[in-house]
């Protein structure tokens, strides 16, 4: 019995969103009477933090504090259209739509403030603290709650804006097949270190070290948690998860959740990552996207590491202990080991 170690590498080139049919998202913003900016979306936050990053982007583009922004994703039947939360597209697509809507709403907000301050809208700016002031004389200012109240009850105006993002469909050149299939691409590289138990066939992932290039990070803490959660899920795909693990008949497949094999906290490897930011040209503030790709890189990296450890190329995942034991039967490394110990 031996423990064999191996190292594997994988690189990812990840296109954000889909573009073959345009992949649009829309956003609506309106201020309530007291100056809370409601951003209505049909994009869903499934825990990755979409509401947080969209509120950050909205606050920045409107020029109001983060706390003054409320994200409303209550109902996809009644909200503005969104293709959905997938393909790491939401921050990029929805963020762009929100910036466009925020520009329109901000314009009205400054026009109303200009009436109140008896100034030209062009001479006004926001301080990000909830006030609008006259450039050059910051003591001439008005808070956004007062602006919203005035808009509603004095001027009969709606501080609101519409935003949409669509990447035009890229035609395919019939001769060459050439096209522009995506709007932006994020990149990653991962190195996995594993240990293989030659007696049981079990694989232990010792570490997953990665570098991610994701464009501008709106929220680095959320990016970090996506990378960790994705690394773990990728490991689960590489080594554990399948609905048909038992050879040879599907009758032996798990029939319910409790029989579906998942790794747990004891299997957590050492996860290290650095994030590089090369802003995209068409994302909101240079965003690309991180999410789905974080679960992609670990799979080939781990499989390469196991292949490296045992000296046999593995081509099917998940790499269950059974597959490892069968592969070890044809492993030149194992032959050497048995000869050495004989």
């Amino acid at each position: 019995m031996a423990k064999l170690r191996g190292t594997g590498i994988a690189a990812v080139n990840y296109p954000t969103g889909m573009n073959l049919g345009g992949d649009p998202s829309q956003a609506l913003i309106h201020a309530t009477t007291t100056g809370t900016f409601v951003i209505s979306l049909s994009s869903t936050d499934l825990g990755q933090g979409l509401k947080t990053v969209i509120a950050q982007i909205g606050a920045e583009a409107l020029g109001v504090p983060f706390e003054k922004v409320l994200i409303d994703t209550a109902d996809t039947d009644t909200g503005p259209h969104c293709m959905g939360t997938f393909a790491s597209r939401a921050t990029h697509r929805v963020g762009n739509a929100v910036i466009m809507a925020a520009k329109e709403a901000r314009k009205v907000m400054l026009e109303v403030a200009a009436e109140e301050l008896e100034a030209s809208p062009d001479d006004l700016d926001t301080d990000g603290q909830g006030n609008i002031y006259v450039k050059g004389s910051p003591e001439r200012k008005i808070d956004i709650t007062s602006v919203a109240l005035a808009a509603h009850f004095k001027y009969g105006r709606s501080i609101s804006g519409r935003g949409m993002y669509i990447k035009p469909k890229s035609p395919v050149d019939p001769e060459t097949g050439k096209m522009d299939p995506d709007s932006t691409e994020a990149h990653a590289c991962m190195v996995a270190e594993v240990e293989v138990d030659t007696e049981t066939g079990e694989v232990t992932v010792l570490s997953l070290k990665s570098a991610y290039e994701v464009g501008r990070q709106v929220n680095p803490a959320l990016v970090r948690e996506q990378i960790i959660g994705g690394a773990f899920m990728g490991m689960a795909h590489a080594l554990y998860e399948t609905t048909a693990p038992y050879y040879p008949s599907p009758d032996h497949a798990p029939g319910n959740f409790s029989e579906y094999i998942l790794p747990g906290p004891h299997e957590l490897p050492r996860i290290e990552s650095v994030v590089l930011e090369y802003p995209s040209v068409n994302g909101p503030y240079g965003v690309k996207g991180v999410g789905e790709m974080t679960a992609n890189a670990p799979i080939p990296a781990i499989i390469n590491a196991v292949s490296n450890a045992i000296g046999v190329r593995l081509t099917e995942f998940p790499i269950t202990p059974e597959k490892v034991l069968r592969a070890l039967e044809r492993s030149p490394k194992m032959k050497q080991l048995t000869q050495a110990s004989a």
């Binding site: 825990g47 960790i228 690394a231 773990f232 998942l262 747990g264 906290p265 957590l268 996860i271």
Partner: peptide, 10 residues
């Protein structure tokens, strides 16, 4: 079971 975080933050 946690399917999101990878347990580290927990």
């Amino acid at each position: 079971v946690c399917r999101c975080t990878g347990y580290e933050s927990i």
